[in-house]
Amino acid sequence: MNSPSVPHPSCTAEGSSLLRRWRRECSRREPGHAFGVLPGVVFGVGGDWSRRDGARQILGTALPAAVFFEEAARFAGRAGDPGHRLGAGWNVAIDVTLGVLAVVLVGRSNRQRALALPGAVVIFLGFAVAAG
């Protein structure tokens, strides 16, 4: 029996199955884990820029919508995959709606909204070309 001053191996970092699982997941080096941070950075920059003047205001309004459009394109690309769940069409519709809604709610004027929506499409196309 272990003495009270010595912790059980399952309670230490080395003996923890959670730590082993974490190391196994991190050792895969899948880029998907890093891409969870990227939209947060884009939304943060977009929120800051949308309150500035000039071209940054338009880009800041367009950036969150471009993220939603990219997400919709990924769901649309997987819609024909037999291993993908049904209802991908709903995901596409929801993401496109959220992208348009982001422009409508973040934009301060109709002019800013009218410029940001095509800007979001152009940014999305740039993402698509860069991703290959």
Results as ranks from 00 to 15, higher is better:
residue 114 A to C: 06
residue 92 V to R: 02
residue 16 S to I: 05
residue 129 V to R: 05
residue 86 L to G: 11
residue 22 W to M: 09
residue 120 A to G: 07
residue 57 Q to L: 05
residue 129 V to S: 01
residue 110 N to E: 13
residue 35 F to P: 03
residue 98 L to C: 06
residue 105 L to S: 08
residue 20 R to K: 14
residue 2 N to P: 12
residue 87 G to C: 04
residue 126 G to I: 07
residue 103 V to N: 00
residue 110 N to G: 07
residue 91 N to Q: 08
residue 127 F to P: 00
residue 49 W to I: 00
residue 12 T to I: 10
residue 5 S to K: 11
residue 24 R to M: 07
residue 105 L to M: 09
residue 84 H to D: 11
residue 34 A to Y: 15
residue 21 R to A: 12
residue 47 G to D: 05
residue 15 G to Y: 06
residue 2 N to G: 06
residue 39 P to M: 02
residue 77 G to Q: 10
residue 95 D to N: 15
residue 37 V to Q: 02
residue 115 L to M: 08
residue 21 R to F: 15
residue 57 Q to P: 06
residue 83 G to M: 12
residue 55 A to Y: 13
residue 131 A to E: 14
residue 132 G to P: 07
residue 37 V to I: 15
residue 69 F to N: 00
residue 84 H to Q: 13
residue 30 E to F: 12
residue 89 G to V: 07
residue 28 R to S: 05
residue 52 R to Y: 04
residue 58 I to S: 03
residue 33 H to W: 14
residue 102 A to W: 05
residue 17 S to P: 11
residue 111 R to L: 15
residue 47 G to P: 03
residue 85 R to Y: 12
residue 127 F to V: 07
residue 132 G to M: 06
residue 68 F to P: 01
residue 110 N to F: 11
residue 80 G to W: 14
residue 49 W to P: 00
residue 19 L to Y: 14
residue 107 G to E: 06
residue 21 R to V: 12
residue 25 E to N: 14
residue 3 S to K: 10
residue 109 S to C: 08
residue 19 L to N: 10
residue 45 V to G: 03
residue 65 A to S: 03
residue 97 T to N: 01
residue 37 V to T: 07
residue 1 M to K: 09
residue 27 S to K: 08
residue 121 V to Y: 00
residue 18 L to Q: 08
residue 49 W to D: 01
residue 97 T to C: 07
residue 59 L to V: 09
residue 28 R to E: 06
residue 114 A to M: 13
residue 16 S to P: 11
residue 92 V to G: 00
residue 103 V to K: 01
residue 62 A to F: 00
residue 51 R to F: 05
residue 130 A to C: 05
residue 43 F to C: 02
residue 120 A to E: 02
residue 126 G to Y: 03
residue 64 P to I: 00
residue 67 V to H: 02
residue 55 A to R: 13
residue 81 D to T: 02
residue 21 R to M: 14
residue 108 R to C: 02
residue 81 D to R: 11
residue 29 R to D: 07
residue 30 E to L: 13
residue 44 G to R: 06
residue 12 T to W: 09
residue 9 P to L: 04
residue 49 W to V: 01
residue 38 L to P: 04
residue 118 P to D: 01
residue 17 S to C: 05
residue 94 I to V: 15
residue 97 T to A: 15
residue 30 E to H: 13
residue 85 R to F: 15
residue 108 R to L: 06
residue 53 D to A: 12
residue 86 L to M: 12
residue 115 L to T: 02
residue 34 A to W: 14
residue 123 I to H: 03
residue 28 R to Y: 01
residue 113 R to D: 01
residue 41 V to Y: 00
residue 73 A to S: 10
residue 13 A to E: 13
residue 119 G to S: 04
residue 24 R to C: 04
residue 50 S to H: 05
residue 8 H to S: 11
residue 85 R to Q: 08
residue 86 L to Y: 07
residue 32 G to T: 08
residue 63 L to Q: 03
residue 40 G to P: 04
residue 97 T to I: 01
residue 105 L to R: 09
residue 29 R to Q: 14
residue 75 F to Y: 11
residue 30 E to I: 09
residue 88 A to N: 12
residue 40 G to E: 03
residue 34 A to D: 10
residue 60 G to Y: 02
residue 128 A to M: 09
residue 98 L to R: 02
residue 1 M to G: 15
residue 43 F to Y: 12
residue 52 R to F: 04
